[in-house]
Computed example of a mutant assay.
Amino acid sequence: MAPALACTRVTRDANGAETPRIEAPVVDRLVMQVVLDGAHDVFISGAQVPGIRIERTRLMRGERYQRTLKSEWGLSLHLEAQAGPETRRYLLDFGYTPEALNNNLDLLGIDLAAIDALILSHGHYDHMGGLLGFLARHRDAMREDLRLYLGGEDAFCYRHAPAGNGAFADAGVLDRRALAAARVRPVLSEAPLAIDRHAFTTGAIPRAGIERVLPNTFVEFGVRDGAGCDPALYRNHHFTPAELSGQPQPDQHLHEHATCFHVRGRGLVVITSCGHAGIINSVRRARQVSGAEKVYALAGGFHLAPAPDDYLARVMAELKALDVQHVFPMHCSGANFLEAAKREIPQALVLCTTGSRFTFEA
């Protein structure tokens, strides 16, 4: 089945600024399964939240009692959305290692042959490290016309981690040649995009508020050794001489995107994965491009672990003003965010762990 992609139109806000808009699909049901996160808590509360069914994966039983879910620094989510008689399934991000990802997919009983498409939030290794090993093991069982949705060319850049004294260590690269060898077709879009009449992406997220990209990796713009990102393929970015020098620059995640669903009668579910562009910016962008105002849930990594106290306090104040009904912090959100959420928005906070499964229904 060919992918159903909604056309993007452009509107203008009250200040005359252009805002891309799409006809965001509406689903009747969304199931979000945490395939891989930083911890597996077998004692985590199974308490229910009105309007959301919460299921926790405890220890394995029967013949599998000697195996357990693996957790690591990374994130992977299985998403199943139903609209009328149609159901679509996606795997969003792939954790740090294929060993942990493949182990958990097996134990959770996820039908990989039924996956309709793959989505990558951005080009960090803790979100893409398991991808090629996952494909090596499972590609032949999956649909032939397998697509990988990405926010833009930025996902293919070489990335580097500071190693001290001005030196850098290799932090990985997503190689187009490896995807081609695995018969996976990348679909890049800096504009918002509707996928299969079920999901939609925000496209590039403007940095319009108080949030900034907190320190993380460095990025290298350019192509070498057959891999990397091509500055000529970016849509609306004017590169500086420093950025074009081939030397690592602070990573701004120019085209990291959020994956979203509009659940009928509930509102938007916005999944930030890492949220380097800012969780407030991500939510506002999802509302702008979809035209839906109500945000039912914000989920994923919020990248607030390295946030200074004053910065976190400002983000929390903005989050409270957005009136998001449910908040599901994962991955890089940080113990500091969890403590602040318990104090500031306890009624909205839903704890997550590897194996947790959340169902949103109209």
Rank of each mutant, 00 (worst) to 15 (best):
P50A: 14
K320W: 14
F239N: 01
T19A: 11
V26L: 13
H331W: 14
H78W: 15
D310C: 03
L214T: 04
L179Y: 07
F360H: 04
W73E: 12
A348I: 04
Y296D: 07
G209F: 14
L351Y: 08
D28N: 08
D145F: 09
F134R: 01
P241A: 11
F328M: 07
D154V: 00
R89Q: 15
Y149K: 00
V42S: 05
G130M: 08
V34G: 02
E18N: 08
A114M: 06
A100W: 05
E153W: 00
L105W: 02
E190M: 09
E153K: 02
L91R: 00
F156G: 03
H124E: 15
M142R: 01
L131E: 06
G209R: 12
P250Q: 10
N103P: 06
R143C: 10
L150T: 11
G291I: 09
V173D: 02
Q33G: 00
Q249P: 01
D225T: 02
I119W: 14
A313L: 03
R21Y: 15
R264L: 13
E361R: 05
N336R: 02
A114F: 09
P206A: 09
V315P: 01
L92I: 11
H237D: 08
D225N: 04
H331K: 04
A2M: 13
L351K: 05
